[in-house]
Amino acid sequence: MNPVTLEIQEIGGSLACEIKTLSGASPMSCYQCTKCSSGCPVAGRGDLKPHELVRLVHMNQRHAVLTSRFIWECTSCHTCVTRCPQKVDIAAMNDTLRALSLSEGLAAADIAAPVFNEVFLRSVRKRGRVHELGLMAAFKLRTRRFLEDLDKAPMMLKKGKLPLRGARVGGRSEREKLFRRAAHGGEP
């Protein structure tokens, strides 16, 4: 096996500290036993395995971490933290890293999860609930993936799994305020 060569930018804990403050996860507790990577369902797909991501955090490799595909392919299944002998919460860490990667413009353009999250939350903000048919349509419009899953919508309509009209819950202006306050850390 070829050794991995890292260009060390800086050794130290600034990224680890940031992660700890924002997510409560303690990446520095990791001793690289690789149990997380053994159980991770997407470890074989991505550019990184979970224990490698944590090691990059140890080495403060901010750019490599925030541009990795792994943080976006994590399914939040929590197998890693459930089995970790040191209880390093990689799932929570990835939530934080996704937000940092987005705010710093470092997520690859073809990663669709942020668009999905955005249209999903817009539906919740407006209606109070998610209308799945509307969500799928909005997602397809935004990502221009018109040909994907063309057979699914008619089949699901036939099976009664996609009501045309979604429910709406009252209190929209209150909900708007709730979303705004959440975005501003509790301030109005």
Binding site: L22, S23, S76, D95, T96, R98, A99, A113, P114, F116, N117, E118, F120, L121, S123, V124, G128, R129, V130, V169, G170, G171, R175, L178, F179, A182, A183, G185, G186
Partner: peptide, 21 residues
């Protein structure tokens, strides 16, 4: 008048919203 729990979309985007909903 229950509302959506926020699901994956909320916890991947905003931890405070993910607890508030």
């Amino acid at each position: 008048d229950w509302i959506c729990c926020g699901s994956t979309a909320a916890h991947s985007s905003d931890p405070l919203l993910a607890d508030a909903l």
